[in-house]
Write a protein that binds this DNA or RNA. Structure first.
Lengths: 248, 248
DNA sequence: AAGTGGTCTAGACCACCCC
DNA sequence: GGGTGGTCTAGACCACTTA
């Protein structure tokens, strides 16, 4: 027989504890282990991965931080209740993603898509020079054909080219941008209640003056560079926004 | 001379690594170390706390998770850029605190304060039995005498006693609760735009049907136990809500 | 009593940064 | 080259759960 080879490779493209994290996640996803199920004991996992207990526990700790596992002293390690994006403190979701999560179909009616010049306010929010060429798209967002919101988005053409060619009635802005390697990491948002303007009311098929939930967002990438301005007005009784506030 | 005593006690009310975390935080705050300053080397800190390097690193890792420190390989440990409350993703602020931050004075007109029984919905949200004795207070919240919102708060009397004796026209609910050692850590919030009911409109001195921003919150303590239900309706054009969404 | 996770150690080697 | 953090180990003891 040959020597028993370590399950995890010895030379390190990745630290052993990182490999253990990946291996455990793979086990959970591939074996389809459900929430609440028990893992093998730490000592067994050490044998299986051929690593020390300290190293294994570093991996387990990481998985706790990631919300994958929980430990119960004297009992064992258990798979944590699955937290979907909805349980995440404040996940930035596109309209399309939210629709999917709720089992609905998102679509749009395009009211306008053009390339123009950034106004003073827009330029300031985006951190570019006034007059910079920007792409604008105005859409009525619908869930299963029901108009839910009117969405005015704006971004510098330098962020992503060729946006005029996209079929905005079907495509998701977030999806399109991510295809073009634009990362959207944070959205600073201002929210208020307003009366629908005549124009907005007509687009959304509601009475003028009806309450709408207006949200203005500056979306930035991982380096805090603004990539997108978004102004959405949701029909008051057709949308709810969820968020979480925490206190130090 | 006596024996040199360990800096950290040997018998453990707290794990050694936890004590090290506290000691380092104390150093930073008491010595007023500024962002970007370097800490002693790991080996020095081990000597000082009389703990092993593994244990020290457990503490340092915790401080990284808490956003207090950052490590640079080959260079040392550094104090992370201070994140003020304003940089905090979503700080939970009371109406009074927000007013202070903006340099305004918060006051209230009390529409009702009583002890009653929790309804089925309230009991479910609070995680108590229906009929549990709860304290309710309804207030019109004002900034510099201008009515801004109507606030309906509810909490089990078991959380804090004697709430009927408080002068709610002047006191802050958060302030009163914190005096009674109730910690408010998280507020899961649902936000929507609504038309003001006749009752709400009268209380807020606006036209019936005007848009209001309605926010319902379940406020929980550090152990995720619900301590407070809050339903606030803000006058549409007198309030804006700020929040931040992030993406994985 | 046996098994589980929780904590802790002393020592080693490596990768990276700076002089 | 010398100092720093990054990783890893084998072994020990404790606290908690379960039977």
């Amino acid at each position: 027989m040959t020597d028993p080879r370590p399950v995890l490779v010895a030379d390190r493209p990745q630290p052993l504890w990182r490999q253990a994290v990946d291996a455990i996640i793979r086990d959970i996803t591939e074996l389809g282990l459900a929430e609440g199920m028990r893992l093998p004991t730490e000592r067994d996992l050490c044998l299986r991965f051929d690593i020390s207990r300290v190293t294994l526990r570093r991996a387990l700790q990481q998985l706790v931080d990631d919300g994958v596992l929980t430990a119960h002293q004297g009992r064992g390690w258990f798979i944590a209740p699955a937290v979907g994006p909805k349980d995440w403190p404040n996940s930035l979701e596109s309209f399309t993603e939210t629709a999917h999560r709720m089992g609905l179909t998102a679509s749009s009616r395009v009211l306008g898509a053009e390339i123009g010049q950034a106004t003073l306010d827009e330029a300031e929010a985006l951190g570019v020079a006034p007059g910079t060429r920007v792409f604008r798209v105005v859409r009525v967002r619908m869930l299963d054909r029901v108009p839910i919101a009117i969405d005015r988005a704006l971004l510098p053409v330098s962020v992503a080219p060729d946006l005029l060619d996209v079929d905005w009635a079907l495509e998701s802005l977030y999806g399109v941008l991510e295809q073009r390697d634009v990362t959207m990491h944070r959205a600073d948002s201002i929210i208020e209640a307003r009366s629908a303007s005549d124009e907005t009311a007509a687009a959304l098929d509601i009475a003028p003056g009806s309450p709408v939930l207006a949200m203005q967002q500056v979306v930035t990438d991982r380096d805090d560079r603004p990539v997108l301005l978004s102004a959405i007005e949701y029909v008051g009784d057709r949308y709810r926004l969820r968020t979480t506030f925490t206190r130090a």
